[in-house]
Design a binder for these strands. Sequence first.
DNA 1: TAGACGTCATACCATTGCAC
DNA 2: GTGCAATGGTATGACGTCTA
Length: 457
Amino acid sequence: MDLKRKLARLGGVGPGGKPGTSATPAPAAPVVPVPAPAVEPEAPSAEQAARVAMLRRMLGELTERHGTALRRGPPTPPPGPLPAESRTTPHGVIHVAERLLSPEHHHGSAPLAEALDAEASLVASLALQPSLAGVDFQRMLFLDTETTGLAGGTGTVPFLVGLAWFEGRSLRVHQLFLRRLGEEAPLLRELAARMAQASCLVTFNGKSFDWPLLRTRFVLNRVPVPAELPHLDLLHCARRVFKHRGSGTRLVHLEEQVLGFHRVGDVDGALIPELYFRFLRGAEGSALTPVLEHNVNDLLLLAALLGLLARRFRASGAEGKDPRDLLGFAGVALRARDPERALAFAQAAAAGDSGAVRAEALALASRLSRRGGDVRTAVANLQRALASARKEQTAPLHLSLAKLYEHGLKDLPRALHHARLCPPAESGEALRRRVERLERKLSKATRASTLDLGEPL
DNA sequence: TAGACGTCATACCATTGCAC
DNA sequence: GTGCAATGGTATGACGTCTA
């Protein structure tokens, strides 16, 4: 509660105010006429009047001493030259760095315009988001922000909002730059206008980072929050597909390893907030050029990655040589309930030269055959997987074979054989029960067949 | 530091097959 | 026919990853 309200509560209605009015300091606040109360309030006691007088005096001293700072917040030093061009829009002045990339432009090995060829139904499967199947990806909006930190909440400000969209097969990039803290509203209104023309957002970790942060800024700046667009977050797609590479799925790793693009002179993300704070304290705007370049590269990577993922997923294993990625795609297709594509990817991965990946791919192919009711193929795939597997991979393969032989093929001797080959330490009590049950069933079956043959007991 | 989504382990469910 | 055990599929919770 502000001092003025406290004063009003303590001493009844003060000059130029009434209980519940705005906290704006007296000189700038409009004087609100006070209607005559229906019932005359009680006169304040001498003690109350003395406290009110003291508080007024303290408030007066504070205002005298800090004046402008109290009314307007800390003064912002004049910023250095801007790294972006100033433009007047219906929403106010914004600062934009703009570029247009030709349809032939590549990011690493991938052409940007290939993203336009991604069919919505394919992307929906790839992203495991059925709601994307109806999206017009010709009007997607790529988004990446640079901010004053990672913390989120009200203290983190997006000072650079990178946007990119296709015009024909060329990619238009707009980077909205925040010249001063406190001037976000025009930038946010421009972003909202761009979003209104788009069919969906494409980001990297934007569901968790960029969009929640921007939504908070809309609320804090009293700018209407744009309607939520369908959101394709490529972090999760990339993680599912490239997880078998074992080198993490950070943006720059993907860029180097998947697209073969190496950034030269790129700024470390952790240094970006400090560079912006230096600019706010009067440093040259040119010091932020690497930050804008970093942001452009992130946007181009989004387009390139989407095009590449869609092309390889469409090819069902006929394209892309790394068996680890083929295995990743197989897993995605399986989860997307596309067993034919999953099987095609698994078979392509199994043809690769990595024994461990081949074993995993064949185990996946076995599960698909089992689901399709083809137990013999499922068993054959598991046998092939065993031949390629590393020692630590064999336990689940033996266990699956024991189940398939027992329940699918009714081959008890082979089921028992594989159950006994499972390392006991890994399966414990359940494995012991399985072996005992199989031994019981087998001895019974043996006795029955002996009786059938009429042999003497 | 927030939050979406990943994996992994575990629990639960309906269904199926077997023993009695 | 009944009860038990095993199956695959799904739900849930804990914890890890990633973004500036």
